[in-house]
């Protein structure tokens, strides 16, 4: 009889290779190669239609909601590109997502692995974000080189935007995760997820730049974390929020990150105590 191998201490000390789960999102996409064609086509159509729409809106006015046409186009098109970053991470679309795993009972395996379910979730989502981010970056390079949108305001403007963009993506990651973890209580959250993503896109500035919202809705939206996801980075990019106010905005985004990370951790600890396995 051969003995069972137990990983030695040296093997345990080297970095855990679970980070390689980053590639799952890309592999899933490659399994359906048609998606590699459809994704850029969809993005191109959306960008073109938004360009035409805003150009028509500004045909009789130089400024609206305090923004010029160039600022609005830059905000809108980059908003679409930023939505693309987390498109595959919207887990109602993905078979091995947390939502679907709870629904079909395969969540059992999430609790049988030497990484926590939260860590597994992070690597899977990060892979999807990297994949979506690559498309968004490509789209950004294309529209920027075509002169449809403005470049950032200097090196400091670009740096502030990148920091704000990353913080915004982390805010959206935690918000999406909270909706997903609700599955442990609701057992089916597809309705909630659809409603959530509509509200997120509306109140973050993806559908329409937030300055175009009625005053009361704009005030309401700025009190919510969605604005930190898209509106703040884009407002910094187009100069609607001056660089002198950037520190305060970044601090607000960071506060949301800390608060939402705490809420998410707390929810996971509750969820892991009440796993229900559907389907026997």
């Amino acid at each position: 009889m051969t003995t069972i191998t137990v990983p030695d201490a040296a093997a345990r000390r080297r970095p855990h290779r679970s980070w390689r789960l980053l590639r799952v999102g890309m592999l899933n996409e490659r399994a359906f190669r048609i998606r590699l064609v459809i994704a850029p086509m969809m993005l191109a159509v959306q960008l073109y239609l938004y360009d035409r729409l805003w150009t028509a809106v500004f045909s009789h006015t130089a400024k609206a909601a305090g923004l010029t046409l160039r600022q609005t186009l830059t905000y809108s098109l980059m908003g679409l590109l930023m939505a693309r970053v987390r498109w595959n991470a919207r887990t109602i679309n993905v078979r091995d997502s947390l939502s679907i795993s709870v629904r079909d009972g395969t969540i059992v395996y999430w609790f049988l692995r030497p990484i926590t379910p939260g860590r597994f979730y992070m690597w899977r989502q990060s892979g999807d974000v990297l994949y979506g981010g690559a498309w968004a970056l490509l789209g950004f390079a294309v529209v920027l080189s075509m002169g449809v949108i403005d470049p950032p305001h200097g090196g400091s403007g670009a740096a502030i935007f990148v920091v704000s963009l990353v913080l915004g993506q982390i805010v959206l990651y935690y918000l999406g995760q909270i909706v997903d973890v609700c599955m442990f209580w609701m057992l089916s959250n597809f309705g909630l997820a659809r409603m959530y993503y509509f509200i997120q896109d509306l109140l973050s500035g993806v559908f329409v730049p937030l300055p175009f919202m009625p005053g009361w809705l704009l005030a309401f939206a700025t009190w919510l974390p969605f604005s930190s996801g898209v509106n703040v980075p884009l407002s910094l990019y187009v100069g609607r929020i001056p660089q002198s106010q950037a520190a305060g905005q970044l601090a607000l985004q960071l506060t949301w990150v800390v608060v939402l990370a705490g809420v998410t951790k707390w929810l996971w600890s509750l969820a892991s105590q009440r796993v229900t396995v559907q389907g026997g």
């Binding site: 799952v24 592999l27 078979r95 009972g105």
Partner: peptide, 12 residues
């Protein structure tokens, strides 16, 4: 192994 549930990635 839970016979009616898969831990494999469906599309891979």
């Amino acid at each position: 192994v839970f016979g009616q549930k898969t831990q494999l990635w469906w599309d891979l």
